[in-house]
Amino acid sequence: MSEDSVACGSERLGENPPNEERIRKIVHVDMDAFFASVEQRDDPSLRGKPVAVGGARQRGVVAAASYEARVFGVRSAMPSVTAARKCPDLIFVKPRFDVYKSVSAQIHEIFAEYTPLIEPLSLDEAYLDVTENLKGMAIASEIAEEIRAKILDRTGLTASAGISYNKFLAKMASGHNKPNGQFVIPPAKGQAFVRTLPVAKFHGVGPATATKMQALGIKTGADLEAQSLEFLQRHFRSGGEYYYWIARGIDHRRVKPDRVRKSVGGENTFFDDVHDLPGALEKLSPIIDKVWRHAEQKSLYGRTLTLKVKFADFEIITRSRTEQAPFATKVAVERTAHSLLAPVFPTSKGIRLLGISISGFEPASRSDGVEQLALAL
């Protein structure tokens, strides 16, 4: 095969026309029921049983569900009480995020054997650009097979993979043969593949957008492809252009190995509703501690603090404040968070969740200087 030809999956692609960008080979690796699979690996008594990682208490939420649990309709982000109702034999396991992070690091070491172009999306999934790979392998599906085999050998866990010529299609392909499988979408079949998909399944189309599309008569990729760019921009603003192109199997986004974190945050759901400011401040304190500790560890010093409040009736409000300089101490974060929370009271509704996030990060060198100056004063 010549230098300018590319193989994607088992289908080889011919040389690109003159002046056209070389076709990329993107692999999306997605671990199978990652958190739950780690728990089943480490505790043999859980294997073959419906497992949910998360709190079993009334206001707990499922962080991950094993495939045995998914048969009953249990899904991540589902309230624990709903999950238990759907699956009376469901076994709840407390999450062990330190373990999940350690396993994720093992997996990323495997990725790095093949390419430096790795874009993590979370602990359990990532994009890899293997167009030019460290192994000199021509066929992307063979790379995906090797990676999945190494993950199984080193961690005892299975992964699924999607292989295609862009990120959107690779992501869609990785869910096509789950669990423990892979699927290839070559350029010649990309647009046809998208046409058959329900828009609700599209990566980047959330429930609210899917509902809006349904109301506009857009139910499938073919329906989306039939819309003009102007129509989609009018109804979906900045997202309209993205929807226009992915409906045609086109996605020019690059795999970005150095993704910039935009925020760091945390939140807690309470067993009992909070009704007064002193109680809310007490509940907010450990959240601030956790967020600030993480921000310091990662040297993430931001200028904007956002408070999230979810009431007992599930209404959510957010309040933000942006300072002239990054927050340099936990005391400064506490002061701003308290000032954002105080005006929420008095309230006739109980509060079931509080959260904060810090964003608007400054470069590390600048934030270090700001921190030293603030501490000196």
Rank of each mutant, 00 (worst) to 15 (best):
M1R: 04
S2A: 09
S5H: 05
G9S: 06
G9L: 03
E11C: 08
N16Y: 02
R22F: 06
I26Q: 05
I26Y: 02
V27R: 06
V27T: 02
V29F: 02
M31Q: 11
S37Q: 14
V38D: 11
R41P: 01
L46P: 02
L46E: 13
G48I: 08
G55R: 13
R57F: 09
Q58F: 07
V61F: 12
A64T: 15
A64R: 07
A65E: 12
G73W: 02
G73T: 07
R75H: 15
A77I: 11
V81S: 12
T82W: 13
T82Y: 13
R85N: 06
D89H: 04
P95E: 04
P95Q: 14
Y100R: 00
S102R: 12
V103E: 07
A105C: 12
Q106R: 09
E109G: 09
I110G: 10
F111Q: 15
Y114V: 15
P116G: 04
P116R: 13
L117T: 09
I118N: 11
E119C: 13
L123K: 14
E132G: 09
L134D: 04
A138V: 09
I139N: 13
I139S: 10
A140N: 09
A149P: 03
R154A: 00
T158D: 09
S160W: 00
S160F: 03
A161R: 02
G162Q: 06
Y165D: 02
K167A: 10
H176V: 07
K178G: 05
K178Y: 03
F183H: 04
A188I: 02
V194H: 00
R195C: 03
G204M: 10
G204C: 14
K212G: 00
Q214C: 12
L216C: 04
L216K: 11
G217K: 04
I218V: 14
K219M: 03
K219V: 04
G221Y: 07
L224K: 01
E225R: 00
Q227L: 03
E230P: 04
R237T: 14
G239R: 03
G239P: 08
Y242I: 13
Y242M: 14
Y243A: 08
Y244S: 15
Y244R: 12
G249M: 06
G249S: 01
D251F: 11
R254D: 14
R254V: 04
D258K: 13
R259C: 12
R261D: 07
S263M: 07
S263Q: 08
D273A: 15
V274R: 10
H275N: 09
L277Y: 08
A280V: 08
A280I: 12
L281S: 10
K283N: 09
R293L: 02
A295T: 02
E296I: 10
K298C: 07
Y301F: 02
Y301C: 01
T306S: 05
K308I: 01
K310G: 01
D313R: 15
F314H: 06
F314W: 09
I316G: 03
R319N: 01
T322N: 01
F327D: 01
T329S: 05
V331R: 11
V331C: 06
A337H: 15
H338R: 15
S339R: 15
L341H: 11
A342C: 12
A342Q: 15
P343I: 10
F345Q: 13
F345T: 15
K349A: 08
G350K: 01
I351M: 10
I356H: 12
G360P: 11
G360H: 07
F361T: 08
S365F: 10
R366D: 07
S367M: 11
E371G: 00
A376W: 06
L377H: 13
